[in-house]
Design a protein around this nucleic acid. Structure first.
Length: 353
DNA sequence: GAAACGTGGGT
DNA sequence: TACCCAAGTTT
């Protein structure tokens, strides 16, 4: 009967957002929304959610789809393992639970791509199970409320915050409480410039009293970002373009991309053409360099991509083409591609020119 | 258990 | 410009 929970829920009643996935108790749709919203803002994920629900109204429809179609629908959202896991999990639901979405926390948690947060969100929101969600909002709200300087990105910190979140959970109405604290974190107790003035919890907020609001939550580490230099080959022959599926163990797994030769520094085309990987690929095969386009830096969460696209017109495909998918330009739109390549195609005018 | 994994928006 | 952040999970 926490006073804090009551105030959060009162706040939510007035300020809570009206969102499509809050108008249903369908666990499938709630799960779908939660996966889409992992590390993703509502504004960015909204259209994807609506398109997924329209195309895959239930978990069986998703399970029946090809992975490539799921990835295509996911194109542009990022963290593509989410899409692959989403699809795999749908098939797990069909195989293990006869197509009926599981309700038990352990069963939900066992699905691919479902971690502690998502399992708690689905079970609490769809079934009102007493599972406390711990997401970025919860870390921030609780660390401020209790003025905790424990780093949230350490094992110890995560454990402590999970215990605290569980303590604070309103067990009479877990669904409402969980959504309330997350919305509160997103709209009121924001990372920068939180609205402490009109905050309903200003009387009980220890960090506000201590003047440490801006220093909460505490984070320990910083992972560094490495640069990569990608020399792409836009190869065309007979109205077709060479695509290659991104391999396991690298960025954009499962998406389609152009063949590329990576280097440890920027290369102009002459240097690239002299490099062994290029010579191995082409040998004496003739080509005509149509043009080179250097893209602006493409920033990932952990890599800075420096990409150059060299467009080569060929009379015949090199033998390396065996590992490529040779796609007529008009079918390019059927393939899921990274944002970077999308931007390249935009730059050169979609299909031709 | 630290690092990998996208993209876009905000300050 | 250069960070930080966003309803995290996997390896």
């Amino acid at each position: 009967m926490s006073e804090i929970a009551d105030k959060l829920i009162d706040w939510y009643g007035v300020n809570g957002r009206d969102l499509p996935w809050r108008r249903t108790r369908d666990p499938y749709r709630i799960w779908l929304s939660e996966v889409i919203l992992q590390q993703t803002r509502i504004a960015q994920g909204m259209d994807y959610y609506l398109r997924f629900v329209a195309r895959f109204p239930d978990v069986g429809a998703l399970a029946a789809a090809d992975e490539d179609e799921v990835l295509k629908l996911w194109q542009g959202l990022g963290y593509y393992s989410r899409a692959r896991n989403l699809h795999a999990a749908a098939r797990q639901v069909v195989e293990r639970y006869g197509g009926r979405f599981p309700a038990a926390y352990a069963d939900v948690r066992s699905l691919k791509g479902v971690g502690d947060y998502t399992a708690a969100a689905v079970c609490s929101i769809a079934y009102d199970a007493p599972c406390a969600v711990v997401d970025g909002n919860v870390y921030r709200v609780l660390s401020r409320l209790f003025d905790l300087d424990l780093a949230i990105d350490t094992a110890e910190g995560r454990k402590a915050f999970a215990a605290l979140a569980d303590e604070q959970l309103d067990r009479r109405r877990p669904a409402r409480y969980n959504q309330a604290i997350m919305d509160f974190g997103a709209l009121q107790c924001t990372p920068a410039n939180p609205s402490c003035n009109d905050c309903p919890l200003r009387d009980e907020c220890l960090s506000l009293a201590a003047g440490t609001v801006a220093e909460r939550p505490v984070k320990a580490g910083r992972t560094r970002i490495r640069p990569r230099y990608l020399n792409y080959l836009h190869l065309e022959c007979g109205g077709r373009i060479a695509l290659r599926r991104r391999p396991e163990g690298d960025i954009w797994q499962g998406l389609y991309d152009l063949p590329a030769i990576e280097s440890d520094r920027p290369l102009d085309f002459t240097e690239l053409a002299a490099a062994p990987p290029f010579r191995d690929m082409f040998g004496t095969l003739p080509y005509r360099l149509v043009r080179t386009i250097r893209m602006p830096k493409h920033q990932l969460s952990h890599q800075t991509l420096h990409a150059a696209y060299h467009r080569l017109a060929l009379d015949a495909w090199p033998s390396a083409a065996g590992g490529w998918t040779l796609v007529p330009y008009e079918q390019l739109e059927d393939y899921a591609i990274p944002r970077l390549l999308d931007r390249y195609f935009e730059r050169i005018g979609n299909s031709d020119s």
